[in-house]
Structure formats: structure tokens, C-alpha cells
Amino acid sequence: MSEIITGLRPRLAQPWPAGAGPFAGQVAIVTGSESGIGRETARALCAAGAAVVLNGRNAERLEHTRQSFADAGLTVVSCVADVTDYASCERLVAAAIQAFGRLDVLITNASISQRAYFADMQPEVFQRVFDSNVYGSVYPLKAALPHLIRTRGSVTFISSISALNGMPSGSAYCAGKAALSNLAHTLRLELDHTGVHFGVVHIGFTQNDADKRVLDAAGQPVLIAHRPPRWQKTQAGVAAIILRHIRRRRKRTVISVLGKLIVLLHTFFPRLGDWIVLTTTRRLRHFYE
């Protein structure tokens, strides 16, 4: 696909205004930042002093986000790129270097979710969801790694609490998100000498944009499963936690009480955890479907 890079300026010795904040002088790429959690994480990074490269596949929506950031005086450029295509990821990273001359933070947020049971899914749909969650993190990181090593930077994979113990109707999504934890652990061991931080954030139920869609068994976009509003965190609240995770260079952050309960059950009481999931699957099917 062809990439569209907007808001780009020639690289200068200091190509963005000096400012206060914990991320002042740093440059970040946030994939999937045209909307949702990615957009609010990018906004929080800008407010904390960073220059940010926005990313998405929808050129019109991405440009709307970029323009709203620019109108607010935030330092951003944007790049339309499919993160499951390695050449696109190379151009995404090149856009950051061309605009700002360095790269300090990579947040791999772009992914596709699902509402479909494994037995009903078409194989190509499973692959599409899985690839978006695994290669959608691997390819941007592979392209960005040399620059992150130079700055002893930070990498954060955005995962989900559903990866901690699995969730019915989410097989490909859960498998892909779970893979990110092992990937991060392996990279910490392989690249310990570089000083690069590798972390994973497991996000819980979060308020979504009104047009948020996931894939059904045939690959068609459908609304996400119902979640009680009282269980949901705001996108801005999740973004604040992600920034705190990066500042503290944490290995893992699990968001929400439910997520921490899942960790506890999965670690110490796995049979009880499975019983709870199986019971709620029978009695609260709408929670999964």
C-alpha cells in the first residue's frame, strides 16, 4: 500500500519546541492512534512533552486526528501505514526519523479483535486477527529497533486482560495478545545489554468510540460484546496508566481490579478461574457474545 505522511517538516537540530514534562525532548510512535486508546495515549504523550508520530490505516480519520492535535498546539506528524506489512512499518519509522531525528518510545497498540467462537471461524479470519496482534507488534519493533537501541528507548506492547487466562469467543485475539508477553520476556533476555525497555500493558474493559467494531466468524465487522459501563475505564484514564508504565519502565502492568483478580486466580487457583468462566459462559452468554 502507499503511505501518506502529513504534518512532516524538515529535520532540525531541535525540530520541536522545548517544553516541560517527563517526556520532553522524546519522540514516540503510537500505532493505531487514529482513534480510541491509541489516540488518547498519543495525546497524553504530547501533553507530557513528547513529539508523536500518529498512525492508522484510515487516511481520513487519521488526518482528522492529526489536525485536531495540531490545532491544540501539539507536536505531531502522521503516517498511514498497515502495521502487518513490514515495508509499511519501515516507512512509518522513517517518517519519525525524518521529522524528528530520533526515536525513544514505541507503543504497539494497533490490533483487530473478534466476537466469534473458534469452531465457527473461517481460517483466514483467525489468521487476520492473530497476525494483527502479533505481527502488528513484531514488524514495527523490527523496523524501529536500531533507533531505540541508540536512545536506550522504551517499547510497550498493548495486550489485554483476556490474554491472561483466555476468554470464550476470543481465541485468535487471546492467543495473539498472550504471545506478546512471551515475546517481551524473550527480548528482555536477548537485548538486556542494550538498555532498551520492553513492557506489556494488559488493558481491561475500556470505553470505546461509537464506531468501534470487531470481526465475526466470517470476518464481517460487528459491535463489540456488551460490557457494563460501571466496569469500563475511560480512554484517558488508560492512557495515563500507560504513560506511568513507560516512565517507570515496568515489565508488566495489569489494568483494573478484574485483571488483577484474573492474575490471582490463574496463578494460584486455575481450576476455580476456569469454573468461573465456564459458569458465566452458560449464564451470561451476552457477556461474551
Rank of each mutant, 00 (worst) to 15 (best):
S35L: 11
F23D: 06
V93D: 03
A81N: 05
A13K: 12
F100H: 07
V80S: 04
R61E: 06
A20K: 12
H64I: 03
F100W: 14
Q98A: 13
L8C: 10
L103Q: 02
D85C: 07
L12W: 08
S78C: 13
F100G: 02
P17K: 13
D82N: 15
I4N: 14
L8K: 12
L103I: 06
A18N: 05
A47H: 02
N58G: 09
Q26D: 06
I107R: 00
E63V: 04
R61Q: 13
A28K: 07
T31C: 03
L62A: 08
L62H: 01
L12N: 04
G19Q: 15
D85S: 08
V76L: 00
V76A: 00
I4Q: 15
A20N: 09
A110L: 06
I29W: 05
R9Q: 14
L12S: 08
L92V: 06
Q14Y: 11
A42W: 09
C46I: 01
R66T: 02
A28F: 03
N109V: 01
Q98T: 10
A42N: 06
P15E: 05
S88K: 01
G38L: 07
C46T: 05
V27F: 14
T65A: 15
V105N: 14
C79G: 05
A44F: 03
F23E: 05
T41W: 01
A51Y: 12
L8I: 13
A44P: 00
L103G: 11
L45W: 04
V53K: 04
L106Y: 00
R11Y: 14
G73V: 08
G25I: 12
C79M: 05
S33P: 10
G56M: 09
D71I: 00
R91P: 04
G49S: 11
A24K: 12
R91D: 06
A81V: 04
D82V: 04
A44R: 09
I5N: 04
A28N: 07
P22N: 05
A42V: 07
V30Q: 02
G49H: 13
A51N: 11
V53D: 01
A44I: 03
C46D: 06
A13M: 05
A18H: 08
R11L: 14
A20G: 10
A72M: 01
E90F: 00
P10L: 09
G19K: 14
P15R: 03
G7R: 02
E63P: 01
Y86R: 13
N55C: 12
P22C: 04
V105I: 15
V53M: 07
A94Q: 13
V52C: 10
R57L: 12
A18I: 06
G32R: 04
V53P: 08
V76C: 10
R61S: 05
T84E: 00
A94E: 14
T108S: 10
Q26N: 11
D82G: 08
A24Y: 04
A28I: 12
A72W: 02
A24T: 09
C89I: 02
S88D: 12
L8A: 15
G19V: 09
R57F: 11
A99K: 01
D82K: 01
E60A: 15
L8Q: 13
V80H: 00
G38A: 00
A99R: 08
I29L: 01
A24Q: 11
A95T: 14
E34C: 10
A44Q: 12
N58L: 11
A20V: 03
Q14V: 13
D85F: 00
T6N: 12
T108D: 00
I4V: 15
